[in-house]
């Protein structure tokens, strides 16, 4: 049975609530960059954004049982992140607050994220990525933009582009792979 993005998150959350760290790690890998970018846009400090992003996911892990699914998972995570950032900003003299709970205690692995964000979010690479996307072959770009920007389902994209769903899935994947290659070769190495 095919499920939508929110349903997949629900499946992962259900498993994570039962103690499946793997499911939680997937959620974290999926949303960490967005949380990081949200916090960074708020407090404009790389190091503090890293700390607060980690703290966000520790809180998310600790409070996962309270998530009822009334909103999208990311909306809930975002609120936690922004509340942490707000508390941080309004704390006396912007003093750096160290994370109370260690990452080891939370049993989640956050170490692999920060290098990528450093390379991409903190330099002028974002525009380069936009330009690179624009230079993708038309068939890949169309499928990718319809999915990533317009939020179309694979089925809708297949109808619009008159191609089989399997081809749509493959094109979106190939577009992403091209962009990942671009980030790794052109941006991370030059960052």
């Amino acid at each position: 049975m095919k499920v939508n993005s929110r349903d997949i998150d629900s499946e992962l959350i259900k498993k994570a609530k039962k103690g499946n760290h793997g499911a939680f790690n997937i959620l974290m890998n999926k949303y960490y960059p967005r949380v990081y970018a949200s916090i960074f846009s708020f407090i404009k400090s790389k190091e503090d954004s890293e700390d607060l992003s980690q703290q966000t996911f520790i809180k998310v892990w600790q409070q996962l049982d309270t998530f009822r699914g009334d909103s999208a998972f990311f909306t809930w995570v975002y609120r936690i992140a922004i509340n942490l950032a707000k508390n941080y900003v309004t704390s006396s003299g912007f003093k750096k607050q160290k994370i109370n709970t260690s990452i080891q205690e939370a049993e989640i692995d956050i170490s692999s994220f920060n290098d990528i964000e450093s390379a991409v979010i903190h330099n002028e690479s974002l525009e380069e990525i936009s330009y690179f996307i624009d230079s993708l072959p038309e068939s890949l770009k169309t499928a990718f933009v319809l999915r990533e920007s317009e939020g179309k389902s694979y089925e809708e994209i297949a109808t619009i582009t008159e191609t089989p769903i399997g081809t749509v899935r493959s094109r979106i994947f190939r577009a992403r792979e091209s962009i990942v290659d671009f980030i790794e070769k052109e941006i991370t190495n030059n960052g």
Binding site: G22, N25, I26, A37, S130, E148
Partner: peptide
């Protein structure tokens, strides 16, 4: 995914692309 760091990174990069698409423009 949980037994393969590269796959975790892959998933994270897809999310990062989403951020880049958003903020770059």
């Amino acid at each position: 995914v949980n037994n393969n760091k590269d796959m975790q990174k892959q998933l994270s990069l897809y999310s990062l692309i989403n951020v880049a698409v958003n903020q770059g423009s």
